[in-house]
């Protein structure tokens, strides 16, 4: 509670701030009035069709990444685990890339996100075949690494065979991850998957707590390991697949946010789950505000910024771990 309340307040403030930042330069009262009452002509359009979906998607993808990162770290009992580890991000991205390459993405608005979701589905099926509902953490990690590598190779192949530089450029830009120019259609597409996935992951707290003491101890404390494994895989795939399909790849949030918040929740996986969800939402909202403020005219990509901040943090993390185990 001590952590959730401040995180919730910060998240809410950032959500409001996200609604108020943009090239249109609208006044505070004007934009709020337009958003809430639907009166004010063009301002309503900007608020309801451009800024609201952007803020909502920031909230949703951030929560998805933070929560799934915490669940993945808890399940694998490893602070360096992240949501992309099971290969869903890479395969969802491959699905999106294929739809861009084939021109499918241009046919109708949801073609790209739907292709990404199809990619994520393929990843889950392959993971289940490779790592099964039983088995240890290692088989899941290895299957995920192999799958990610394959998806990355295929993505490179698509880029390699791309008929013209513009198509390749479009793919590269998409892969950087962004929340710009999304609509409420994207929100409604991702929302059901994310809702189901978030509920699945949030319900794992007690099992992940018990898993702190290893699989045998957890099983002897009443945890159904098979059910836990399937819930982690499906929950992560749902939220990450939906997140990639609407926002592209946004790196490091799922890795760094749970890690930063862990000391504030007494390292308990069950308490980390909601905290990392709120923290992830706050970080993505903040980063998405930052890309608009830092370079308003250049379309700085969200994924680029999170990686730019996240990677040095990751280095710092490794440095500290090195110190602990020296």
């Amino acid at each position: 509670m001590k952590v959730l309340l401040p995180l919730g307040v910060v998240g809410a403030l950032l959500f409001a701030a996200s609604l108020l930042v943009g090239p249109a330069g609208l006044g505070l009262s004007e934009s709020l009035k337009a958003l809430l009452t639907g009166q004010g002509g063009a301002v309503v359009l900007v608020m309801q069709e451009i800024r609201l979906p952007r803020a909502l998607l920031g909230l949703m993808t951030g929560a998805a990444l933070g929560l799934s990162g915490a669940a993945m770290q808890g399940y694998l009992r490893n602070p360096l685990a992240e949501p992309g580890l099971i290969g869903v991000s890479a395969t969802a991205a491959l699905g999106a890339v294929l739809s861009l390459q084939t021109g499918l993405a241009g046919l109708f608005a949801l073609a790209l996100p739907l292709s990404a979701l199809a990619g994520a589905t393929v990843a889950v099926l392959l993971i289940l075949v490779l790592a099964g509902p039983r088995g240890g953490a290692l088989s899941l990690i290895l299957a995920g690494v192999a799958l990610s590598a394959l998806a990355a190779a295929l993505t490179s192949l698509v880029l390699n065979l791309s008929p013209n530089p513009f198509a390749a450029m479009e793919i590269v830009y998409w892969m950087m991850g962004s929340l710009a120019d999304r609509s409420m259609t994207h929100v409604w597409l991702a929302a059901p998957f994310m809702a189901v996935g978030l509920v699945m992951l949030l319900s794992l707290g007690r099992s992940l707590d018990a898993l702190t003491l290893g699989e045998d101890a957890a099983a002897s404390m009443g945890v159904n390991l098979t059910r836990l494994r399937l819930a982690v895989i499906f929950g992560t795939a749902l939220v990450v697949g939906a997140s990639v399909s609407v926002a592209g790849s946004i790196g490091f949030v799922g890795l760094v946010v749970p890690h930063v918040l862990r000391p504030f929740v007494g390292a308990r996986p069950s308490r980390l789950l909601p905290a990392a969800g709120l923290g992830g939402a706050a970080v993505v909202l903040a980063a998405d505000i930052a890309v608009r403020l830092i370079a308003p005219d250049q379309d700085l990509k969200l994924g680029v910024l999170t990686a730019l901040i996240g990677a040095p943090f990751f280095l710092h993390l490794i440095w500290r771990l090195r110190g602990e185990h020296a």
Partner: peptide
């Protein structure tokens, strides 16, 4: 029944 496994694993600094 409670079980105390041989491997003494504590994953997080609880």
């Amino acid at each position: 029944a409670a079980f105390l496994p041989q491997g003494r694993e504590i994953a997080w600094p609880l």
